[in-house]
Design a binder for these strands. Structure first.
Length: 425
RNA sequence: GUGGGCGUAGCUCAAUAGGUAGAGCUCCUGAUUGUGGUUCAGGUGGUUGGGGGUUCAAGUCCCCUCGCUCACCCCA
């Protein structure tokens, strides 16, 4: 019989890693709240047309990577491939324009894309994202990046550089797209199949090609920066001025264009080393036309998404060390009739005092209990046998010092607490 | 979707020119009846990813298939 296993491109996070995920998520909530962001939780299942309209038909995500299927009544649904479009949908649907603007939201949740898995790329992956909707100024762009860096630095990341670019507004993009098409059209035959298709659907995307021949050809191509409207130039200059003011390190990358069609003006990403080919840990940008595209009023917005799986892959060791899991006290009964009951009583008493504790319930030998305690890396064990039971005491053994003493049951929690505090000083 | 590498115990790996599967770690038990983590002894655990073929004989050779992994592509 063949074993049932997890679906390709998904994974189980066992205790060791899920603890780390939780720590990161706590750090997200703490930091983002500090900047006035509230959490939004949107469904994993959405109407397929949300992404067709929001992310764009010419994008690879919508074109070939979505988990799309008809439900029992034939409606086309999909597992969300990203969350910005869903947040924008919620903004329109719940009339969040009637809230004080801009609205600041963050989310943490799984996303799904049907791709060939590899290092740092999964079919179910987790994104941490934040969106600022309803403010068009460069201040929002800068503030978002400042928050992002505070978040990363809070986890001991060092030397990260933001890769920054502007792709202009719709008008700039259309003018540039036309010029790029005119330039490349004579060379159409020498372009890759993908690039030929993009020449018709979205010429901008050809800019980030890696094919050497195409890169060479692009050397002489018109540049996006020459087609920016004065508003777009001003906006980008504003973003840069503010980033300088806040000491954010960035590099301008003129060829940075992102794969989602909704991006306008500011786009950015941060890469990390140690991730192989999938080295981008986060990406984002402005999407001033998205809300309108989804049926709302003309409303600007900007956001980013962090790949949590990748982030955790490169999490600095010092941060992990600071968040090791709590070590328990193990309560071991010795040859008692109702040993498990009594062990549970004591463990429960310790928990009331806030001490992480585990009762040994197997009823095996005391040795087995002691072994369990060291497997669990316990800070100590509470032993209780006939003598202790009769005297109303227990024996507490501190594993670090190897000292043990007989203490009254009512004093146990207090004694353990002070011994913990002493060792962490 | 395309290409490379790899599938032997829970994990990391052995197995001479095809000869009937083994080690370390983990886990469990024990080393005079109430003391772990070290040490020692013993034990659990595999239809060698699956199917077919060649052969007296296949983990080993051939074919198919599945899975894992890395890269392209794309992106987080």
């Amino acid at each position: 019989m063949n074993q049932i296993r997890n679906v390709k491109g998904t994974r189980d996070l066992l205790e060791d890693s899920s603890a780390l995920w939780n720590v990161v998520e706590q750090h997200v909530r703490a930091t983002f709240n500090l900047y006035g962001f509230g959490e939004i939780r949107t469904p994993i299942l959405e109407d397929t047309s949300l992404f067709v309209r929001g992310v764009g038909e010419s994008s690879d995500i919508v074109g070939k990577e979505m988990y799309t299927f008809p439900d029992r009544k034939g409606r086309s649904l999909c597992l969300r491939p990203e969350s910005t479009a869903a947040v924008a949908r919620a903004y329109v649907q719940h009339r969040l324009q009637d809230q004080p603007q801009p609205v600041r939201l963050y989310y943490i949740g799984p996303q799904f894309r049907y791709e060939r898995p590899q290092k740092g790329r999964y079919r179910q992956f987790q994104q941490i994202g934040a969106e600022v909707i309803g403010d068009a100024g460069p201040e929002s762009d800068a503030e978002l990046l400042v928050m992002l860096l505070r978040f990363l630095e809070g986890m001991d990341f060092e030397g990260l550089v933001v890769r920054l670019n502007t792709v202009g507004d719709i008008e700039s993009r259309n003018r540039f797209g036309a010029a790029l098409r005119d330039y490349l059209e004579p060379h159409r035959a020498s372009l890759s199949e993908d690039s030929q298709r993009r020449l018709d659907t979205n010429p901008l995307r050809i800019l980030d090609t890696k094919a050497p021949a195409e890169r060479a050809l692009l050397e002489g191509a018109p540049e996006l920066s020459e087609f920016l409207t004065s508003d777009c130039r001003e906006h980008f200059a504003g973003v840069r001025r503010l980033l300088d003011r806040f000491g954010v390190r960035y590099e301008i990358e003129p060829d940075l264009v992102r794969g989602l069609d909704y991006y306008t003006r500011t786009v950015f990403e941060i890469a990390a080393t140690g991730l192989g080919a999938q080295d981008s840990i986060l990406g984002g940008g402005r999407y001033d036309g998205l809300i309108e595209q989804l049926g709302g009023a003309e409303t600007p917005g900007i956001g980013f998404a962090i790949g949590q799986d990748r982030l955790i892959d490169v999490l600095p060791q010092s941060f992990k060390d600071r968040h090791q899991r709590q070590r328990p006290v193990v309560v071991v009964p010795i040859g008692l009739e109702q040993g498990a009951d009594i062990a549970l009583d004591i463990a429960e008493q310790l928990r009331t005092a806030g001490i992480h504790s585990v009762a040994e319930l197997s009823g095996k030998s005391m040795k087995a209990g002691m072994r369990l305690a060291s497997k669990l890396e316990a800070i100590g064990v509470v032993l209780i046998g006939e003598d202790e039971l009769a005297a109303g005491t227990v024996t507490y053994k501190n594993f670090a010092s190897r000292e043990q003493s007989s203490v009254d049951r009512k004093d146990l929690a207090q004694i353990i607490t002070t011994s913990i505090n002493r060792s962490t000083d």
